[in-house]
């Protein structure tokens, strides 16, 4: 299960909407070993694409150095699908490189259809992706402390 603060979900949704129709991506870091996501880190999608995302390689190194310095881990890796459901694509599964992370997907496919004005229009789902095996998990959204 992924337990995550409502403010962090709001941050992810805002980022996904801002970058729509391109995919948005980023990390929510947290203390190493804690399983608690605390620090929202939106990343640039270097691919600037509606069907692909990739962190810029220099940004990636800076991100991992910073997390290391702060004794943090990427607890959540998020990205948006802008025309399809919030379920890992074949590419997502093939490239998943953090077996300990929660892969959070949001879908903004209903954006621009005259709806998309409330958070309930954005589908949010979370998965573990380990060795090519996808396991969906419940998302518990908790109020900000």
């Amino acid at each position: 299960m992924l337990k995550i603060g409502a403010h962090l979900i709001a941050d992810v949704i805002a980022h996904a909407r801002a970058d729509h129709p391109d995919e948005a991506c980023g990390v929510i870091a947290g203390p190493a070993g804690s399983q608690v996501p605390t620090r929202f880190i939106p990343m640039v999608n270097a691919a600037r694409s509606p069907t692909f995302y990739e962190f810029d390689s220099r940004d990636l190194l800076a991100l991992y150095r910073e997390m290391d310095d702060l004794d943090e881990e990427p607890i959540v890796i998020y990205h948006s699908h802008t025309a399809t459901e919030a379920y890992p694509s074949r590419t997502d599964i093939a490239l998943a490189g953090e077996p300990g992370a929660h892969y959070l997907l949001v879908s903004t496919r209903d954006e621009g259809a005259g709806v998309g004005t409330s958070d309930t229009d954005v589908e949010i789902r979370s998965f573990r992706i380990v060795d090519g095996v996808v396991t969906e998990e419940p998302v518990e959204i908790v109020p900000m402390a």
Binding site: F52, Y53, E54, L61, R90, T91, D92, L95
Partner: peptide, 10 residues
Amino acid sequence: ITILPAVAGG
């Protein structure tokens, strides 16, 4: 030397 898998997908 630092090795990092890309964070990428579709």
